[in-house]
Design a protein around this nucleic acid. Sequence first.
DNA 1: CTGGTGTGGTTGATGCTTCAACTAAGGTCC
DNA 2: GGACCTTAGTTGAAGCATCAACCACACCAG
Lengths: 159, 159
Amino acid sequence: MTSHRTSTEPGRDVGWLDADELVAWKRLVAVVELIPSVLDAQLRRDSGLTHFDYLVLAMLSEVPDRTLRMTALAQRTNATLTRLSHVVKRLEERGLVLRFPCPEDGRATNARLTDEGWSVLTEAAPGHVTTVRESIFDALTPQQVSELSEIADAILRRL
Amino acid sequence: MTSHRTSTEPGRDVGWLDADELVAWKRLVAVVELIPSVLDAQLRRDSGLTHFDYLVLAMLSEVPDRTLRMTALAQRTNATLTRLSHVVKRLEERGLVLRFPCPEDGRATNARLTDEGWSVLTEAAPGHVTTVRESIFDALTPQQVSELSEIADAILRRL
DNA sequence: CTGGTGTGGTTGATGCTTCAACTAAGGTCC
DNA sequence: GGACCTTAGTTGAAGCATCAACCACACCAG
């Protein structure tokens, strides 16, 4: 129930997916389903973090003062503010992150990576990178990495 | 905290990601995060289904008798048996799917798509396909679709 | 035909995500 | 300097996924 047509028709069918697109789509759906579970499994097992936890810590670690406004952090992690708020609350309870009101804007909240959070992140990073390398990049040629980069970029500009 | 090196070093660094890989990875992570939310949002809004619900119904619809064993269905949807069991239970409560013991193997359970389920699926399909086309394939050239297909296939064989 | 092991599947508790509702502060218009 | 809209963020309830434990049947060995 992804296409009502089998294939072999010339031209671009606006309504449905042609055979090549259908194959690509099924594979992409599988990838999009499996990648998060692989990353989550490794990070939870080895570091007690979800992949999203890791992303939040990583984004803070790359930034001056290790501090970002919640909205900025949400943008960088491609998450809703609601989701981020819940996650940062849990990270704060674990001492990995500190929240404090933003001096410039009374509505805003800043999140800062603590030393403890930095330490957890640096311990988690090597295993995570190894997983990424082994499960993704070792399967691709440099040419394919470059193609993937372009394709992902094109898709992102649509979303 | 995805790479400790900036770039520009020749050769293949086993431990970390080089600059090209890092860019590709960040984009891929974003895609993998955003695609499910786009699909879920559209399907929930228009049809009251999650994308995974849709996938389950779609897999059943493509098969003789519209019937599959739970394990086979789990493989086709890239899900754990636990997850599938919960979802099929909910779908059964909504009358979209029927569960019954497998005659050949007393341990196994068959799941069959009901007429109601078929009808919900066929009503959901056009909107879903449109979303897929607009958010993914309209952004890609036929060449890129083919590259994506190969890349996803290579990754899947690793997982 | 009994005991042991592996397979197929379900369940309940827990944790994360989402949705709707809400508080509070900034900006604007007059 | 209120009335009003927008922006920033939080909260609680409900839904979905995951994990560990479990039951039931199949299969095999002796």
